[in-house]
Simulated scan of single mutants.
Amino acid sequence: MAPRYTLRFNGAAAARELRAAAARGLYHGAEHVLGESQEVVPLDEAALSRSGAASVDEGTLTAAVSYDTPYAAYQHERLDLRHAPGRTSKYLERPLNESVDQVRALLAAELRRALR
């Protein structure tokens, strides 16, 4: 006679763990993009750089990277502005586009950890 096994699956707890892991992964991804953008954000008095932040809305599972100065969007969008060497406009868009694979990997790693 073959042995009998019982499997209990708590779907609600698993969903909560995966959602929390997804939020952590998104936060790590946003932090990565923030770090990459800090390397190219325009520097004058460093107020723009210091205003950078990463955040996650756990309810909607969305992440954001933002810079909070009155001129952040202006600096980001104006391609004709002069910046110090290595600093550039599109200081958030470019690092985000270049970091897609790393962000996916960070998110996947957190989800894998939650499934162990």
Rank of each mutant, 00 (worst) to 15 (best):
T62G: 01
F9R: 02
V103N: 10
Q102W: 02
E77W: 09
S55W: 04
H28T: 00
V41C: 13
E93G: 10
L92D: 06
R112I: 10
Y74V: 11
G59C: 02
Y74C: 01
A54K: 11
A73S: 09
A54P: 10
R116V: 14
E45T: 15
L26F: 08
V40G: 02
D101M: 09
V41T: 12
A47M: 08
R104K: 15
Y91K: 05
E77H: 13
N10G: 03
A2F: 09
E31W: 00
L7T: 08
R4E: 03
A72R: 09
A13H: 04
R19I: 00
R104T: 04
E36P: 03
V100A: 09
Q75A: 13
G86Y: 03
L111D: 08
P95T: 07
A13N: 04
R87A: 02
Q75D: 03
L106G: 04
L7K: 00
R87N: 02
D57Q: 05
H32G: 03
M1R: 09
E31A: 14
Q38V: 00
T69L: 07
G35Y: 04
G11R: 11
M1S: 12
M1Q: 06
E77C: 01
Y5G: 07
H83M: 11
A46H: 06
S99N: 13
R104C: 04
T60N: 07
R4G: 00
S51E: 03
A46Y: 05
V41A: 15
L61F: 09
A23G: 06
S51I: 11
V40Y: 01
A72Q: 05
R113L: 10
P42W: 01
L18I: 01
R78G: 03
A12Y: 03
R94F: 15
L43D: 11
V103F: 09
V40D: 02
A12W: 02
A15G: 01
A63M: 05
H83N: 15
S51N: 04
A20F: 03
T62W: 01
Q38A: 14
L96Y: 14
G52W: 12
Y67A: 08
A108I: 05
L111H: 02
H32M: 06
R78T: 10
E39I: 00
P85D: 00
A21S: 09
E45W: 12
L26P: 05
T60W: 01
G29V: 08
R94W: 14
A14V: 12
S99A: 12
A12E: 15
A12Q: 13
L61Q: 14
V65P: 10
N97E: 09
E58N: 06
L107A: 12
D80E: 12
E98W: 07
L43S: 11
A20H: 09
E45Q: 13
R24K: 14
A46L: 14
A63K: 04
R50Q: 12
E36Q: 15
L26R: 04
E58Q: 13
L92F: 07
G35F: 06
D44P: 05
R87Y: 00
Y67V: 10
P95D: 10
F9P: 00
E36H: 01
V103C: 11
L107T: 07
L111G: 06
